[in-house]
Design a protein around this nucleic acid. Structure first.
Lengths: 69, 69
DNA sequence: TTTGAATGGAAAGTTAACTTGACATACCAA
DNA sequence: TTGGTATGTCAAGTTAACTTTCCATTCAAA
């Protein structure tokens, strides 16, 4: 699954650490999401979407060819 | 987090087992989601939304008072 | 009344989404 | 050149989302 977290975070002029604080997760978690090392839990995805006042689908992109993930 | 999975599944005239097969998860996973024993992974949430041709937000409801979950 | 289909849910194991802590790199600014 | 800010990434530990297996309950149909 791809995501636009890096892009959206920068658009809001935030560092990974600032975003992590607002979401109450670690900085490493944000970095790992941005670099695709793992996917967010659905709760974290909801928190991120809420913070940026958008939907999960606008940030996290579930591709056609990812049926088996 | 609440969800309308039971309602939507029945609206589509499917059993838990049929839904599980289509999603390639176990029947117990569907039952556990419907009864709130745990939340889906974001990948499973995307699969469910795609199957029912709707959005994650239409099925899974992230409440205002769940900031710490 | 019995049988089978649908569901609820517990137990134990695996995996991935997190954590904290550490160290490396890159890049400004003083 | 030094120092601080931002990021990348690894290692080891915890937890929750899954799995399989099993048994119990409900209920409609034969």
């Amino acid at each position: 699954m791809k995501n636009r977290l890096d892009e959206i975070r920068k658009k809001h002029n935030m560092t990974q650490e600032e975003l992590a604080e607002k979401l109450k997760v670690s900085r490493q978690t944000i970095g790992s999401l941005e670099n695709g090392r793992y996917n967010p839990s659905i709760i974290l995805a909801f928190k991120i979407a809420k913070l940026f006042k958008t939907s999960i689908e606008e940030i996290f992109i579930y591709g056609e060819s990812e049926e088996n993930e």
